[in-house]
Design a protein around this nucleic acid. Structure first.
Lengths: 219, 219
DNA sequence: ATATTGAATATTGGATCCAATCTGGCTATG
DNA sequence: CATAGCCAGATTGGATCCAATATTCAATAT
């Protein structure tokens, strides 16, 4: 008799679960910049001791999402407009390269999947969903590249500016422009025009950066 | 009366010390790919308990330097030739951008410091020193850019391929070519020619990549 | 002889306890 | 009144102990 292989899970340690939860909370802005991460408090939330909490925090620190001082504890990292701008520049350099490599490798399946995210993004009216769909759309296209190191690097960069990205989408013309640009990128990919996809991606990121910095400077 | 600020140290936790030591050992190849990291063993080496060891290992994992499996322990990550090649490509994209930004900001002090590393690299006959001096030379030039995120990203990438970099320098023409290219880069920086510095850096990295992959394919 | 079971050992993940350090408020003193 | 010193609570870093899982190897059945 044949059995289906079932994932007996237990795969995730408490530390990993806490890490993921804290990361999500920081990225999505539930934990504000400068907010202190009290080990005891977090441990109680997850019904664990402080040991896995500390492991989670130290891993977050390696990602630059928190800063901790010996005997003083950890706080959520802040990000100045300049730093956010630098990270957008970083993405504007890397992501065009990734999509250029990816285009010739995209399967019909990947393309339809990307298009479905693109469509969902277009019709969604839930601002909390926009950020997710936006990332999924781009990630689906990028994944075809097979450039695992680049993909990790970009994910990490996106984590750092996720809040800014969402903020930018909410701006008056943010969604409209993003939508339009997504369609053009999707089109270029379907045509197999890697150079166009790369150039459009470059403009897409720099456009978001300018829109964001422009907005921030007015505050 | 004025006091110089003295670092009362104690700044470093045991976990940080262990992290740095393990990282150095992995980067420099003292710990080979696939080598298991036994918490107990490492704890005894540092006269600590396993707690800070685990924290160090989990931080290393976030940097991709080790891979660990629940209840099975951690091993030093391997890196295929393809993956190493990908990371060289990544550097070939980022570092030219960094140096282009850096050139107009370089102080005379930074330039002389870079030149001293360049000279030391040229005359050193200790292969273990080459890797360090090489990284210090480039880092000194890059630091002027003030692009902290980019600098961290490149450092992290260099950590992953450090062994390959050293191996490449030891190849017959590795040092000679690196030396020559370093001088050209230093020259371009001193002339204030950012575009030339960027282009030379690009070629420098791709040249090293090709030399390395070419060598590896012959094994 | 080979494959399978099961117990003994090794190793990791986490809980609890202790030590070191920070923080905030109180007091003494000028 | 202002300020330095100091004590008590809060908080973190680490050590020790226990639980969960993996691995090894001897015993047994086919």
């Amino acid at each position: 008799m044949q059995f289906k292989s079932v994932d007996i899970s237990k795969t995730a340690s408490a530390a990993s679960i806490i890490f993921d939860a804290l990361k999500k909370a920081i990225i999505e802005g539930d934990l504000e910049e400068g907010a202190p991460l009290r080990q005891d408090e977090i441990a109680k939330m997850f019904n664990t001791s402080r040991i896995p909490v500390r492991e989670a925090i130290s891993r977050l620190e390696e990602h630059g999402l928190v800063k901790s001082q010996r005997y003083k504890g950890a706080v959520v990292s802040g990000l100045s407009a300049d730093e956010a701008g630098e990270i957008f520049d970083y993405r504007a350099i890397l992501e065009p390269h990734i999509i250029r490599v990816a285009v010739p490798k995209m399967t019909p399946k990947a393309l339809t999947e990307a298009r479905s995210f693109c469509d969902a993004f277009a019709v969604s009216d839930d601002p909390m969903e926009w950020g997710d769909l936006n990332r999924k759309f781009h990630a689906t296209l990028y994944n075809a590249s097979g450039l695992t190191f680049h993909l990790e690097a970009v994910e990490s960069a996106l984590d750092r500016v996720d809040r800014y990205l969402r903020a930018q989408l909410v701006l008056s013309d943010g969604m409209a422009r993003a939508n339009d640009e997504h369609l053009r990128i999707q089109d270029a990919c379907e045509r197999g025009d890697a150079d166009a996809a790369a150039e459009l991606t470059h403009q897409h990121i720099l456009g978001a950066k300018n829109s964001l910095l422009n907005h921030l400077s007015k505050l």
